[in-house]
Design a protein around this nucleic acid. Structure first.
Lengths: 208, 208
DNA sequence: AGGCTTAGCGGACTACAGTCCGTCTTATGA
DNA sequence: TCATAAGACGGACTGTAGTCCGCTAAGCCT
């Protein structure tokens, strides 16, 4: 199970030590893993939105306060569960083979990213909805959004320097909102249609 | 104050009678107006998200159940309050002068719409956030979203028949999500930047 | 006017998110 | 090994959204 949320020694990771807050306490780690495991189990069993945090705490055998101190809120828990999957995509983007990774022309990389993100989103819509909508503006606060944004922003900048890359990256990410995806799926749109629709937008926006 | 939410006789409006369910009862109308007025007052006074529905019910001098029966949920109440302002824009689009209304070329109308919507959104972000985020997928269920979508969809179809107009219209509406707007404003983006950013996207997407 | 049907009313009730703080555990260093 | 402080634990508590249903009033029909 995912282990990436807790503090981790910077020196363990071979990085220069700066503040080095303090290693995660054993009980903290144990409970964090228990909660994640319980959440994962209950979510797949009953559907994300039919599971209360009380239930997760109970299933994990910890108190409610523990869940909240660790994850902040519902969104935080969902983010933690998505983390693993998102990191996979992040890794492919940063250092994988083209077209997702470096090496392909910007437009191609943009389209590859949109495709890959849509796949991920489609596989985990419920969790994404939780992570994005559980609190106001949650989507735009989480680290991964910033990462996707930076990625697109750089590619846009490279492909078309006169565009406002920063804003345009937000525009390209907007149609990837979990809520919209879910609504469209419910209306019968299929994934391929969205993929080609978005690719068309990207093509119109950026020169090859 | 806004009066458009309650049932209204079709024959009163000069339309052919179809189902004609029954006129709104006097007490129902009275309470509906009271609630809207109370909500408006409390929202401007304390900020939208600092006002509970209990407080609104109390201020209006009605029971909580009344508020919910009438408006469904928090989002429904926000929608009712926005209705008046949105209808103004809707009217301008359907039958006002160009470039917002009919007569101008599609791309010009699309850009005019995006500008006008951003103005509206910016003036009422809080209320929009409430109406879009209070319940899952609320934004895509309300009538006005469908209207904006149809409008853009027709214009896109007219300007660029080989695009998937339906999907692309959703893509153009996505960056107008209240949540995103709020997040960007908080980050220091100003309205004009968003306007020109979106216009650039529209221009790239549609031939003049 | 008076009865009767239909719809609206409203507040007690449930369930859930998120907070708070006294208690207990872990890690440390003497 | 043990005292101590930093920090985690957890459950009682608060505030809010949304539901339910017995009660009441409006409108209709005679």
């Amino acid at each position: 199970m995912n282990d990436s949320t807790g503090p981790q020694s910077a020196s363990q990771r071979g990085l220069p030590v700066v503040g080095e807050p303090r290693p995660e306490r054993a009980d903290a780690r144990r409970n964090r893993l228990r909660v994640l495991e319980a959440a994962d189990r209950l979510f797949t069993e009953h559907g994300v939105k039919n599971v209360s945090l009380d239930a997760i705490a109970a299933e994990a055998g910890v108190g409610k306060g523990t869940v909240f101190r660790r994850f902040g809120d519902r969104a935080g828990l969902a983010v933690a569960l998505l983390d693993e999957r998102e990191q996979e995509l992040q890794a492919k983007i940063l250092s994988g083979p083209p077209p997702l990774g470096p090496g392909a022309p910007p437009l191609i990389r943009v389209m590859a990213f949109l495709d890959a993100y849509l796949d991920l989103l489609d596989r985990h819509v419920e969790l994404f909805m939780d992570s994005e909508n559980a609190s106001d503006g949650a989507r735009y606060r989480i680290g991964s959004y910033h990462l996707w944004h930076r990625h697109l922003s750089h590619l846009i900048e490279a492909a078309h320097p006169t565009l406002d890359a920063d804003y345009t990256a937000h525009v390209l990410l907007a149609p990837l909102a979990a809520d919209l995806h879910n609504a469209l799926r419910t209306q019968g749109f299929d994934l391929d249609r969205m993929k080609s629709g978005l690719r068309a937008v990207a093509k119109a926006l950026l020169p090859a």
